[in-house]
Amino acid sequence: MTWLLAQLPQVMARDRVLAAFVTGCQQITDSVRAQIDDLEHEIDVDLASPEMLAYLSSWLAVEVRPAATVAELTAQRRLLRAVGRVLLSRGTATGLEGLLAGLTGAQVTVHDSGGVSLPGEPDPPGGDVQIELTSLGLNDAEQVHAMIREELPVGVGYRLTVAGREA
């Protein structure tokens, strides 16, 4: 007797038509349960397949390229972990530091004067956001610039320095 059929009252379980119907339902639910049981492993960034990583990144508004090497896959996992950690602070200096550290695996320092101005008022003094990285990691400069432009508020300028050199 199957686990679902065992849940029925004995009178119903002895009915052949009902037993066959319930057994068919159990086969369907068993396959769904197996998929649900694996779901926590698919959402875990450390265990997820490369395809699931790409899907998870789309949830978080982060574009990842298909990983061709183990190092690239490791970098994608690091980036998605960083995005999850800084989700609530995206758009801030702290959030940008976390995302760039996740993208590059490097030490990141962001200097931002901060400040807010109302429409028609002059911008607060302080100038552009200064971003310092120790390395680009596996990325080219354009990928890092694209991430920065995506994360900074509209109209905010920045200066990127990598290992002491302007990038």
Rank of each mutant, 00 (worst) to 15 (best):
S117G: 03
W59N: 09
S117T: 12
T161F: 09
V162G: 07
A146W: 06
V129A: 00
L88M: 13
L103M: 14
M147E: 12
R65G: 02
A54T: 12
D38I: 05
I28V: 15
H111C: 01
D38C: 10
L47K: 14
V11A: 15
V11S: 14
R77C: 06
G115K: 09
P124F: 07
A61N: 11
R90C: 04
L56H: 02
S117C: 14
E151I: 00
Q27K: 11
P125C: 06
D123M: 06
V110A: 04
P122W: 13
V64L: 15
A75L: 00
V129Y: 01
D44H: 11
V156N: 08
H145A: 12
E150G: 09
P125N: 08
R77G: 06
Q35E: 14
E42Y: 06
R77P: 05
L18R: 02
E40A: 11
L118C: 05
A34R: 15
I148E: 03
T134G: 11
E51R: 14
L88W: 08
L4E: 01
A13D: 04
T92I: 09
E142Y: 10
L53E: 04
G120W: 05
V108G: 04
D112T: 04
L18D: 00
V144L: 07
V45E: 05
T74K: 10
I148T: 01
V32I: 15
A68C: 03
